[in-house]
């Protein structure tokens, strides 16, 4: 790929936009771009990065998962209560429970989409309330607070390895795994094929419904993982945890150039989309803008991004005239 083409990609544009934003902030508030603060920003954005990657896989297959934040909340509540009941349960077991439970919740979405052919938006709007409601049912609406959680439970995401918290390392690991999965496995390519051209995918021997199911399972598993990390890092679990976060996740994908009609998207794009939002969120208090601006900014970013995506994806006609073909 030539350099000029590389620079025209969505990923490059986003990276430049983030760099410009950082430079602009640094010109007034140099402390913001100090390495320590950048690590903090990345660490703060880690959950969004992980969830955006799961969401991207779902959107690649022409679906959408609005239940991620609710899955996160339910899983977070379950592991917090599990820790409350069995304080000696090792973190590895907690992680396994979180991922398995999230994966199961995602599979419920996936089964409804695959086997009953219900539109994904309806399925996940429904399960979004059901999952969050279940979190209320099992907790009775009570919070699990910091002092009720075991030290090991709380310490895991914050432990530092090579100057970076485990939370950040996990995000990096997920990025690497997803990059390999999407580019180097048949399943990964099937996500693109099933969303890009479902009919052709069927001809190529890909089961589109099953591929969608796998995407939801993956998205759920990642949401479950974040459920534990979130609850442990902030040392609190409650029903409204991460309420409305699904919108940020979708926003990160759309900003990252993931096409809502499926088939288009890259790991780098989704990560940069998440970082774009993460930098804004962390910069607002620094530049003395009320955090209440964040919601409107995400909304505006979604709209601008979807307009840009649509411009890029315009289809051409049949092109019958010979000189028209030559001129192209």
């Amino acid at each position: 790929m030539t350099l000029t083409r590389l620079l025209k990609t969505r990923e490059a544009m986003l990276a430049v936009a983030i760099a410009l934003m950082l430079a602009l902030i640094a010109s007034r508030f140099p402390a913001f771009v100090a390495p320590g603060n950048l690590v903090a920003v990345f660490n703060d954005t880690a959950p969004l990065i992980i969830l955006a990657l799961g969401q991207m896989v779902v959107i690649l297959t022409r679906c959408i998962d609005l239940s991620v934040a609710a899955t996160l909340a339910l899983t977070g509540m379950v592991v917090a209560m599990l820790n409350l009941a069995l304080p000696d349960l090792p973190v590895a077991a907690i992680l396994a429970v979180a991922v398995a439970l999230g994966c199961g919740l995602g599979m419920v979405n996936g089964l409804l989409v695959w086997k009953l052919d219900i539109p994904p938006i309806v399925v996940t709007l429904g399960t979004m309330t059901i999952y969050r409601g279940t979190a209320f049912l099992i907790s009775g609406g009570k919070w699990v607070n910091a002092h009720e959680m075991s030290d090991a439970f709380k310490a895991f995401p914050r432990a530092q390895i090579l100057g970076l918290p485990v939370m950040s390392w996990i995000a990096i690991l997920v990025v690497v795994l997803l990059a390999v999965l999407l580019s180097r496995t048949e399943t990964g390519r099937a996500f693109y094929a099933a969303g890009g051209n479902p009919d052709a995918a069927t001809y190529a021997g890909i089961d589109v419904g099953r591929t969608r199911f796998l995407a939801f399972a993956l998205s759920g598993a990642l949401a479950g993982l974040v459920g534990y990390l979130w609850v442990a890092r902030y040392a609190v679990a409650y029903v409204d945890l991460a309420a409305g976060f699904e919108l940020d996740v979708v926003a990160a994908c759309v900003i990252g150039g993931v096409a809502i009609m499926g088939g288009v998207g890259s790991v780098a794009g989704a990560v940069l989309g998440a970082l774009f939002l993460g930098v804004i969120k962390n910069a607002l208090p620094v530049i003395n803008v009320s955090p209440f601006w964040q919601m409107a900014i995400s909304g505006a970013a979604i709209i601008i991004a979807v307009i840009l995506n649509a411009k890029a994806g315009r289809t051409r006609g049949r092109i019958i005239l010979r000189q028209a073909e030559a001129a192209r």
Binding site: V250, I260, A296, G299, I303
Partner: peptide, 19 residues
Amino acid sequence: PSIVVTIGTMSLYRGISYI
């Protein structure tokens, strides 16, 4: 697509209220 547009304006409109 109306789903994405209105997910966006859903954030935008309420976001303005928050501002």
